[in-house]
Computed example of a mutant assay.
Amino acid sequence: MVIGEQDDSPTYASLLVEAFADKHPDVQIEVIAKAHDGPAGIVQSLLATQPVAPWRMPDVIVIDTVHIAQLVNQQIIAPPPNNHFISGIWDSFYPFAINAVSVEEARMAVPFYADIQFMVYNGAMIESHPRNWDELTRVERQYALPLAHGDGSMADALLLQYIARWGRYEGDVLDLDSQALASVLQQYRRLSEAGVIPRATDSLTSLEECWRAYFAGDAMLAHVSSVDYQRARPTLQRTHYAPLPTHNGHPVTLARSWAWAIVTDDPERQELATSLIATALQDESYTAWLAESHHLPVQPRALTRVTADDEPYRDFLDEQMANAYPYPNSKVYPQVQEILIRAIEDVLAGEATPEQAASAAASAIRMLR
């Protein structure tokens, strides 16, 4: 079993191995932790190992769902066997989680956990959270938004606003409407001119850095990832949460998710892998791992367990996740991110109008087809 380094919780691994051993005392599990991405990460390791040493491939992995289509195309992962557990589990997941593991409508992995994006703000300084960008402008407080090259969060934030503006998104990042994109870029320029996203915060390269800027008091509002809020949540007193403000006030979020995928093509080992996945999603071990990792469950019933102490927060997360869009899994999305980032930079630097930047971006993205 190969899992991401961030998933390698001693408590969770111990509970999982022990629970699985109770069902299969004659089967031993080897747990290998690797980075999810990068040269030595799970994906590159699988791609490098399969052609030269297929017998060294793991039976089951935890994978960032952005890589699922690539691994399916390389014939590294196959759909889970349609046994009793698999056939009965799909109705328990949020829709975005199923979409994230689907390739041409085939469900290629079992959802495991996710992070979503929302806004935090200082409730002692801001009485009511802004729902749209006009209200955000009138708040007259600094908003931490990723506006520099980094992990792609700058482009992701723009895509999220585009989805809210366009009103629909089928996951095709290669077919963006230039007028809707121009409208969003116009809003970016307005926020910049109003000082809501001042130069002091335009070096933020990730949602984690947005959280740090907010936590340090450099901004009174911030676009953040749920994992950073979850990590600090027990100690927060004045921090409130809310949907991200959008062009028209329509709440929207992106969900980045991870899933269990089966690599082995041996039917007997596939059944064992399925049993391991079922064990991983059982109440005790799953709840313990979520508490340690600060990620969110992809099942409403699990969300109820991990937020039992805070009903308003549970209701907020449930609504956000029920309507979340899955993170793009196109193999060219990193190139799309670079194009979108350039569009934002050109507009904020005054080197192009929103219309010019949007038209150039949409044309460049279509060339990636």
Rank of each mutant, 00 (worst) to 15 (best):
T235Y: 14
L290A: 08
H294S: 12
S92D: 13
S183C: 10
D172R: 13
A308G: 02
L158R: 05
G88Q: 04
R369V: 06
P39M: 07
M154S: 13
I341Y: 04
A35H: 09
F112I: 05
T264G: 01
E127Y: 08
S203T: 13
L204D: 09
L272Q: 06
Y333K: 00
D134T: 14
G167M: 11
E351D: 15
P245D: 07
I29P: 05
N248R: 09
A35M: 10
F96L: 06
S203C: 08
Q179Y: 11
D346V: 03
N83D: 15
P54F: 03
L185K: 06
L147P: 00
T279P: 00
P334G: 05
P80I: 03
R269D: 09
P80E: 08
I262R: 01
M220N: 12
D202P: 02
V60C: 08
A360S: 14
A232C: 01
V101C: 05
R131L: 09
E351H: 14
A308N: 07
R342M: 10
I197T: 15
Q282E: 15
V227S: 08
R138L: 13
S225D: 13
E193K: 14
A259W: 00
Y229N: 01
S45W: 13
D151L: 04
Q337M: 09
L207R: 13
S226P: 05
I163Q: 02
L181Q: 09
E208F: 11
H149G: 02
T353C: 10
M321E: 06
Q28L: 13
L348R: 02
P312M: 07
D283K: 12
T304W: 02
E18M: 12
K34V: 00
P312E: 06
M57C: 10
L303E: 03
P326E: 07
A349S: 08
A19V: 06
Y327S: 03
I63N: 07
H250S: 09
A302N: 03
S192A: 15
Y313D: 01
V31M: 15
L46D: 03
T307W: 03
M125S: 12
R369T: 08
Y229F: 13
P245V: 07
G4M: 00
I63R: 02
Y169D: 00
R107W: 03
P80F: 07
V52A: 13
A180I: 06
A361Q: 08
E345Y: 06
A69R: 13
I262K: 03
A259I: 03
R256F: 10
T264M: 05
P245K: 09
V263L: 06
L254I: 10
Q356Y: 01
P198F: 05
D346S: 12
H223V: 07
S330D: 14
T205G: 14
W133M: 05
R199A: 11
D115H: 01
I89R: 11
K331N: 02
R168Q: 14
L272G: 02
P243I: 01
A182K: 02
D37E: 14
Y12S: 00
P312L: 06
P146K: 04
V184Q: 05
S330K: 00
I116F: 04
T49H: 09
I86G: 01
M57H: 10
E140H: 14
H240Q: 14
P326I: 02
I63H: 04
N122M: 02
